[in-house]
Each structure stands twice: as structure tokens, then as C-alpha cells.
Design a protein around this nucleic acid. Structure first.
Lengths: 196, 196, 196, 196
DNA sequence: CATGAATGAGGCTTCATTCAT
DNA sequence: TATGAATGAAGCCTCATTCAT
């Protein structure tokens, strides 16, 4: 009987290596050879677990998105109205999340001129916005936000800020230490009329 | 007597074509051949006017940045404290500026893993922020803003918003018509205590 | 006690599947993976039952040759001088034999540049010619053919015709229905002075 | 001004090298690298002059077909009813034509499973048959053949013989010296009632 | 100044084969 | 006996760059 391998686990493993590489050199400069070397396999490993290099990248993108979501969910599970917490789970406040944003930024570049990745990006933005909106509604239910707020608009503003912060911190982390990011975040949230 | 050619004009011309191509297919998928064809020159055009493909791209980046700056300057010259106007000169409110942001987004992808382009990006962000700060100070001088405002912080917030809006509008222009962008912009600016 | 497997039967089974595949896609495009899938085994099937992919193909070639011979023998057993019958047993008159010729044609292509397969092909031609010659001598013995005929030459002519027909019918079966093949066959045989 | 090159001549040159290689190792084992080496160019030469390796092979096939036709035409121009001559122009009677048939045989193998090459093969067969038929009609016009002959059928028989001879001579040239091929040819033509 | 020809490096992918289980 | 995992070699192709003209 042959050695059996958890196919999905191996895919995630490869995708994880890919993400690390992307953060370092950019999606478009990730080569199968480099990836294989970094993962400790031969170049054929990619074709073994993915139909295509493209499929690997798509999977990597989605895996990264899921990881980010999971982080947010972990915050919201005990406190479904923890707006600040769920946003901070997304911001590049530490090394790990900084690296994650490097990956997003790189994928954005790829999405220009690649309709499928652009669509994926749109999907993710929409999804994140809906989650933020849900948090806002939970806040309203708890009296932390006026019930007649324009939840969609506020969610858009918040996501706008998140993306904007991430872009800047992504390219200039030294100029955007966690404290400064949090300060801007508070500044944005303050005028929303949030009550504690 | 050799035919004289305006070297710099030719460089700008090529960069303009490059920018158009980048917006369509992404920086990393722009090939010298495609560029030459689009520009109506031979493939040797790059080596002729630029040391390198890389230099061409860098020049393209800088040229695009200058064009954006010029647009802002045109607004500020008659009205140095026109905050909304100068910001709107940057947002992807119409087809042309949308295309310009596609170029930025694409360059961001390239900047991941390319220190020189990342530095260029940092430079540009800093520069833009300084310009916004200058507008804010002009506003303060005209009594439109409290004199003790944290100009740096506000400029950061505004640029954060600009980048955030551009990312989202860049990938989903249908979801971000000019009016919606302006609405978010006003929403951001309102709590700043701007007086007219 | 290990499960006993009829090694040879398994080899023939695999070769049969290989022949089917060859007729569809050509020898050179038959992959072990595809073959394994079609046969319902794992990719290691080849190494198990054959030293090599090459040996598998050689075996397939020989098995196909034997099948054709068996068909001829079945005709000649009851009637050793049935020239027309034995030739028709070789011609691509129906779907099955058409498929068989696809296999031969494909192997011919492989034989170019492959001395071993070329030798195999020569062997088969020689063998078939000898069998035809034997039929001719049987005919002579039965008074159906002048005893002083040049049996070798006639056999060569007949095999020439068989191969020629098969090539054309192989690539254009619609243009070579059984009837037309038989017509040409009769036309060739007629001047030989065959008596019934 | 750049060095100009006769594009078509270069294509024919490359195709000629390809044909030589095909006769040696078989179409499917011709690699771009080997071809480039044999032609004295870099591997990029193929993509330079052909869209594809496949296109190169198709071109090679067609170029070889044209060369064969030209040889036949050269015979028929001064003597449009020279049946034997035009057929001999096709048979593998010398080294050059033997090599040419190696190429055909190899392409046949490729045509199995490749509809486009199979169609090309059908086209060529049909074309050659029509040319033979034309010769037959010229013969009839000159009283060398009964006017009511079944020209189509005779042409089919002759082409059948040509192909059959070529296959056998192709794989066993030692067994098929020119004289033997001619002998079979005469044997075939004799019963047709040709008058000189 | 400008070009088309030609290159060499390197990318992705496919495939027969080997190996531990 | 039989398997799925994994490999390394090799294939085709693309591309930025160089060079003679």
C-alpha cells in the first residue's frame, strides 16, 4: 500500500510557501523553480497538486483571504460588535499581517489586466464590506450606533480607510507603526457617534 | 547633418504609450515588442531611448506622477486652499484618472519585491502628503481650519482615504461612480471642522 | 498465499488497451498515465508487467501482428488456397480492421528513426509475404495458378497492394468502402491467371 | 538599415533541415533544440520564422509535397502522357526519394490522432490521384489507352501500388532495389493494355 | 538614428520512472 | 502484487537584449 498524503493539507502547505515568496519578490516574479526550492520539493510538485501555476496562485489568494477572515471571525465570535477589534485584525499592525498585505498588494498588481483575479479581488472587497456592515448592525442593536445610520456607507468608509492604511503601511512600515495606524483608526471612528 | 530628434519628447511619448499598455495588461505583462508595436517603433526603441526596460518603466512611473501633480497644481494655483478640488484632481472620478490609477495599482504590485520601485512609491506618497499638508496650512491661514490642527495627521488621513477609494474604485468602477466617491470624501472632510 | 495473477493474460489485456489508445491518438502520444487510466490500473502498471514503456509498445505491436495472423490462419485452415479470403482478412474492410491499420500506420511513424521497430516491421512484412506465397503455392498445387509462376514476385505485388490499400483507406475510410477495396483487389488478381 | 533576409527562403531552409532530421529520427522525436543545432541557429529561430513547432512541421510537410509535385511536373512538361516516368518520379528509386518517403511515413504516424495532418494527407493523396488521372487521359488522347477506361479506378490502383511499394521499400530498401520496384511497376501496368 | 535578425536565459509543463508503503 | 507520491530530465516557448547594417 502506498504512502497516503493529505492532499488538501499539502496544497495549503505549498500555498503558504507561495505566499511567503510572493511577499518577498512579488507574484509575478515567483517562479515554480524558486517555489519548489523554498518548499523543499521538485518543480513537479506544483503540477502534482495544482493544475497550473495560475491555479496555485488563485488558491494562494483564496487561502490568504480565508486566513484573514478567520482572524476576524475569532474576534467577532465572542464579541460580534467589536468593530475596532475586527478592523485591527485586518490592519498590518504586526509582522505577520504586514506580510499578508504585501501579498494583497502584489495580487492587486496582477489583477490589473487579469479579469479573473480582478473579479476575485472584487469578491473579497464585497465580502469584507458585508462583514463590517454586519458588525455595524450588531453595534446598532446594542445601542452603540444610531439605528438609522447608513450602514452601507459607513462600511464603505471603513474599508476605504483599511485599504488606504494598508497601502501606505505596506510600502512604508517604518512610517506607519501600529500606534499611528490605531490613531488614524480612532480618528475615523470617533465622528461616527459610537457609544461605549 | 543628422535629423535632430527631440530626445525628451520621444521619451515622454514612449512612456505615454507604456502607461496605456500598463493600464490594459499590467506592468509585468508589458513586453518590449508589444510596446514597440503600439508605439509604432521597432523593438530597439527601448535601448535607444532608455538604458533598460526597467529604466523605461521607472521613467513611466515618474512621468505619470508628474502628470498627476500638474493636475493638482493647476487647481491650487488659483486657489491654494482648495482642498476638495485638489483631492478630486487625484481621485478616479473619470475615465482618464481611472486609467491612471490602474497604472499605480500595477506599479504597486511591481514594487513588492522591488526595493527601488518601492522607494519611488514611498517618495510619491510622502510628496503628495506634503502637498496636502500645505493646502491644509493655507486653509488654516484663511481661517478655514483651526490653527492648532494636527496637519500631518489630517494629511495622512486624507491620503489614506484617497488611496483607499482609488483601490476600490480601481477594481470596481461600476460600484464607485464619481458621486459615491465624492460622498465619502465629504463625509471624511466634514468632521474636520472645515469652515467655508 | 498471494493472489495469483495470470501474468500473460494481464499483459495481453494491457496491450489491447494500448492498441485502442494508439488508434485514437497515435503511438507517440500514448502516455503511461492515460494508458493506466484507460486500463483501470495505476501508473505503475507498466513497470509491473513490462520492463519499459518501450517493451509494452513492442509487445503491443507483436500482439496485434499475431491477432492479424490468427485471422488469416482461421481462413486458411479450412481452405489453404483461399487467396482472396486470406487477403480480405487483412484489408481494412470493417471497423475493427480499420482500427488495426491505424495502429500499424502509427507504428510505421515510430519505426522511422527507431531501428528496432523498423526491424520488427520488416519481419512482419516478410512473414506475411511468405504466408501469401504459401497460399499461392497451394493454389498452384490445386491447378489454380500456373506452376511456373514467379511466386515471390506475385506475393510481393499482392502485399504491395494490401499495404497501398490500407494506407489510403486508413486515412480516408469514407473514400474507400469495402466494395471499392474489393474491386481493386479483384482487378489486381484478375490478370494473374487465376482459375477457379 | 538592418540586414534584410528573404523570409520565405529562410523558412524553406529551416524546413529542409527539418525534413532531413525527420527522416533520421522521426517527426515526433524532432526537437527544436536538435533542429536548431542542425540548422546552425539558436532554438529561437523556429519561433522566429514559424508561429509554432506545429506550423513548422505543417510547412515542412507541404514543402516536401511541393517538391515531389515539381519533380513529377518536370517529367510531364515535355511528355504529358509519360505514365511510367511520372510514377518513377515518385517512387523511392534513389537515396533522395527514399529519404523523402521516410518523411511521409513519419508524417503518417503523426497523422494518426491528429486530424489536421490527416486531412493534409488526404488532400495530398487526392491531388496525386488527380494528376495521375490526367496523365491517363492524356494517354487515352494519344491512343495509348482505351478511351473508355475507368480512369478513376486505374489511377486508384496505381496510387495504391505507389504507396504500397514505398512502404515496403521505405522500411527495407535493401530488399527493394530500384530494379525490383520497376519490375513490379511494369507488372502492374502491363495488363492495363498500354500501347506504345 | 533606426532597424530587423538573432540569441541565450529562463519559464511552465509533461512525462516515464522510481520508491516507500 | 499494487499503489500514489515524488522526481529529474527534457520539451516548447517567450522575452529582453545585442548586433550588423
Amino acid at each position: 500500500m502506498p504512502r497516503l498524503v493529505d492532499h488538501d493539507a499539502r496544497r495549503r502547505e505549498v500555498a503558504e510557501v507561495a505566499a511567503r515568496l510572493i511577499a518577498q519578490v512579488g507574484v509575478e516574479r515567483v517562479t515554480v523553480r524558486e517555489l519548489a526550492k523554498a518548499a523543499g520539493y521538485s518543480t513537479a510538485i506544483v503540477s502534482h497538486y495544482f493544475a497550473d501555476k495560475r491555479q496555485l496562485l488563485l488558491f494562494t489568494y483564496q487561502a490568504a483571504a480565508q486566513a484573514a477572515q478567520a482572524r476576524v471571525d475569532a474576534v467577532l465570535k465572542p464579541a460580534p460588535d467589536d468593530l475596532i477589534g475586527s478592523i485591527e485584525a485586518l490592519l498590518p499592525l504586526d509582522e505577520e499581517r504586514h506580510r499578508e498585505w504585501q501579498v494583497w498588494l502584489s495580487f492587486w498588481g496582477m489583477a490589473i489586466g487579469d479579469p479573473e483575479f480582478a473579479a476575485e479581488q472584487r469578491r473579497r472587497v464585497l465580502d469584507t464590506r458585508k462583514r463590517i456592515e454586519k458588525v455595524l448592525r450588531a453595534m446598532a442593536a446594542n445601542g452603540k450606533l444610531p439605528a438609522d445610520s447608513d450602514f452601507d456607507l459607513i462600511a464603505r468608509e471603513l474599508l476605504t480607510m483599511i485599504n488606504g492604511l494598508a497601502v501606505q503601511a505596506g510600502f512604508d512600515p517604518a512610517d506607519w507603526p501600529a500606534e499611528r495606524q490605531r490613531k488614524v483608526l480612532r480618528q475615523f471612528v470617533a465622528p461616527m457617534g459610537v457609544k461605549d
